[in-house]
Computed example of a mutant assay.
Amino acid sequence: MKIIQVGSSGWAAGWLEYIHNDPDCELAALVSRGGPNLEAAKEKWGIPDEVCCTDYDEALKREADLVIVALPHKFHIPYAKKAVEAGKNVLIEKPLTDNIQEAEEFLKFMKGRNERAFVSQNYRFRPQLWQMKASFGDDGIGRPAWANVVFRHGVTNRKNSEKTAWQRKDWRREQTSLLMLEVAIHHFDMLRFISGSDVKSVYARGWNPAWSDLEGLGSAFVLLDFENGFRANYSVTEKSIGFPTGYQCDWIMQTDKGAVKWENDEPNCLDMSVDEHGELKQDFYFPGKDRAGVLEDVKRQLRGEPGCVPTVFDNIRSLAVSFAVLRSVEEDRSVEVSEILGEM
């Protein structure tokens, strides 16, 4: 798969590593403003000068199967539209946008086109999540009923702790809500994936801790009701003090036979009822972790095979949950996700 990538620094630099390590991928063009970040990428991954360019329009004239837009959120849709107009499929970093009206316009633009527009929700690609999903059913660990999902990040003296990208004072803080659109949207998307259902309604309470340097929402408790009857209790804070969770959250998944615990990216633990028998499947399909899985899944979809990297038409339902939570916090009421989607 020949790839044009836009962006060479920060998160975009990580994409170069995944492309380099995938034997089925070839970097057709790297679009960058230049500077030390580009030079570092060229040296690290052996990228020839002729692959690099500063002119996006010129890069789009090259033969490619996919354009990866790995830029700050405000550039996602403008660059994606140019790629599609040039006849290219596109993979856009999340969030698709922080403006629901812009999302609506892009969906109208994409309707009826042959080109595909995907959104990289890389947190879907965790082996523990796929193992749980593969193990559901009467012949496995039972049918999912609800989940308790907790995300805590912030300040800690724990050894080897690091300042996350979400805590940096950069373009991420320009979003409508860093907490909902940079952080929580990952977890809403994971819940949609594991439940196999869309969110019907949310009720949320949110606040910003007194010690927070974020503008707007810094913490929230969210109740989510899904269309298939599944429920989730979600707690999120970007300004906790102590005991941080992994990026993928700490999970308790309750089924009608028992519960699965997933914490700190460790292997799943299963606790079955004394009257029930079941086990987590050890043999299950998994395309790869994080963005390696995203690339593998996109390749499958471009070959006409089924996959789970969401297109923009699917991802809008995760984005809408984030906006529904913001409305619920602001108006102190339960919000139907259809309210957000109906305004599009």
Rank of each mutant, 00 (worst) to 15 (best):
I4F: 13
G10W: 05
W11M: 15
A12W: 12
W15E: 02
W15I: 03
Y18L: 00
D24P: 00
C25Y: 01
E26T: 14
G35Q: 12
G46N: 12
I47A: 04
E50Y: 10
D55T: 04
A59R: 06
A59V: 12
A59H: 09
E63Q: 14
D65F: 09
A86L: 12
A86Q: 06
N89S: 08
L96G: 01
I100K: 12
L107A: 02
E115P: 05
A117Q: 09
A117S: 15
F118W: 03
V119K: 01
F125H: 08
Q128D: 03
A134M: 04
S135Q: 11
F136L: 05
D139Q: 11
G142I: 10
P144I: 15
F151G: 06
N160P: 00
N160L: 12
N160E: 13
E162W: 07
A165G: 09
R168E: 15
R173L: 09
Q175K: 13
T176N: 08
S177R: 04
L179W: 04
L179V: 09
E182H: 14
I185R: 03
I194C: 03
S195G: 02
G196A: 12
Y203W: 13
S212A: 14
G216L: 05
F221P: 00
L223T: 07
D225N: 14
E227V: 14
N228R: 08
F230S: 07
E238F: 06
E238C: 05
F243A: 10
W251F: 08
Q254S: 08
A259R: 15
E266T: 11
S273Y: 10
D275F: 15
D275A: 13
L280R: 06
F284H: 08
D290K: 07
V294H: 02
R303V: 01
P310W: 01
D314F: 00
A320C: 09
S322V: 01
A324N: 10
A324H: 11
E331M: 14
V335D: 09
E336T: 07
L341G: 06
M344T: 13
